[in-house]
Design a protein around this nucleic acid. Structure first.
Lengths: 88, 88
DNA sequence: TTAAAAAGTCAAGTAATCTTTACAAAAAGT
DNA sequence: ACTTTTTGTAAAGATTACTTGACTTTTTAA
């Protein structure tokens, strides 16, 4: 007899996902809205918009909603939570 | 002659919205999942789940996505961004 | 009706988001 | 080519999410 163990990490999903956003795309779909204009409409600084577009951090849900509201779209249209591509 | 000024706040939308969530509902739709179990699956502490359910703060978008993923639903099914009811 | 499990509360500490300021690089207009 | 507008970078401070731990209240179940 022999025994095969398959170890599945408890939190195997964690750390493998990445948040993508279409902010830049929607800015240009809305009359070439600048970062500054979006920032004002969403009630944050331009720097926050820059960092978000660049994916430097994940925004608060509150801010995500405010930006979606500016573009009049749903959260799911603006953000996606995808498996990170590890093929490189 | 006289003059009437109507002042419209620039960010009149801000501060009037509130984030609601269906976390508790989804926990009970999922075989009576406890706060502790949800916390483990989402990779946070139970205290974080408690605070979220109680609406004590708006979670990060990252965490919002992880919880939606646990329940296998979209962000928009789990969270809503509604005008605060000022009728009281 | 008592024990055990789950949910709620509080407070202090850590980590991450967001602001502010200031400047550099790139793009667009004259 | 030069100016102006827009975008990108960086770093320090403020604010807020999240953790940790310890305790109380409510719910479930023996």
């Amino acid at each position: 007899m022999f025994h095969i163990s398959i170890y599945i990490e408890k939190d195997f999903k964690m750390g493998k996902y990445i948040i993508n956003n279409n902010i830049r795309k929607f800015r240009f779909n809305n009359g070439e809205m600048t970062q500054q204009q979006l920032a004002e409409k969403a009630g944050v600084t331009r720097q926050t918009i820059v960092s978000m577009e660049k994916g430097k951090y994940s925004p608060s849900l509150e801010l995500a909603f405010r930006i979606a509201q500016v573009f009049n779209v749903s959260l799911d249209e603006l953000f996606s939570y995808d498996l990170k591509d590890n093929s490189n």
